[in-house]
Amino acid sequence: ESETFDVELTKNVQGLGITIAGYIGDKKLEPSGIFVKSITKSSAVEHDGRIQIGDQIIAVDGTNLQGFTNQQAVEVLRHTGQTVLLTLMRRG
């Protein structure tokens, strides 16, 4: 069981404050995608409180990250504006 949710964030001096990890899993058993690996102290993400380590980032400002490499996803996140809309999925 999984839930998908949107989080809109405004960057602070730390930026968004997440590091991400790309993961290619076994299609049947484990998900592939871009996941939140860590959250920086005092960052926008930590202050917001809704995003957790292990959440999958589905889209950034409407750009679907399906099939993106870790590096491609980093580039998408790097080129966002001051306000960012993240679409995430959390597995229950």
Rank of each mutant, 00 (worst) to 15 (best):
R91D: 09
N70G: 10
T10F: 07
T83R: 13
Q82D: 14
H47M: 11
S38L: 04
Q14I: 09
F68C: 12
T63F: 09
H79Q: 05
G67K: 08
G92H: 15
N70P: 13
V74A: 14
G49V: 02
Q71I: 06
L65P: 02
V36A: 01
V74N: 14
I57T: 01
V84G: 03
K27C: 14
L9Q: 05
D55N: 00
G15W: 04
T83Q: 09
S32G: 13
S43I: 08
K41F: 03
S42T: 09
E46W: 11
T10A: 08
L9M: 06
M89N: 12
Q82Y: 04
Q82W: 02
L16T: 04
R90E: 00
D55H: 00
I58A: 03
D26V: 09
V74R: 14
T87Q: 06
D61K: 00
T69Q: 03
I20C: 09
A44I: 13
H47Y: 13
G33H: 09
V74Y: 11
H47L: 15
K41V: 05
G67C: 06
F5T: 00
T19H: 08
Q52V: 05
L16E: 04
A73G: 05
V13L: 14
E1V: 11
I20S: 04
Q56W: 05
G22D: 15
T40K: 15
V84K: 01
G92M: 11
D6F: 08
R91I: 08
K37L: 03
L65K: 01
I34P: 05
I24L: 13
T87S: 08
G25K: 09
V45F: 08
G17S: 03
S43C: 09
V76Q: 09
K37N: 08
G22L: 07
T80M: 02
N70S: 14
N64Q: 10
D26A: 11
K41Q: 12
T10K: 14
A59Q: 06
V74F: 10
K11Y: 04
M89H: 13
N64H: 10
F68E: 05
G81Y: 03
A21E: 15
I58Y: 02
V74L: 13
I53L: 07
I24D: 15
G22H: 14
L9P: 00
I18K: 02
G33S: 05
L85V: 13
K11E: 04
I58H: 02
Q52F: 07
Q82V: 07
G67D: 07
K28A: 11
R90Y: 02
R90F: 01
K28L: 10
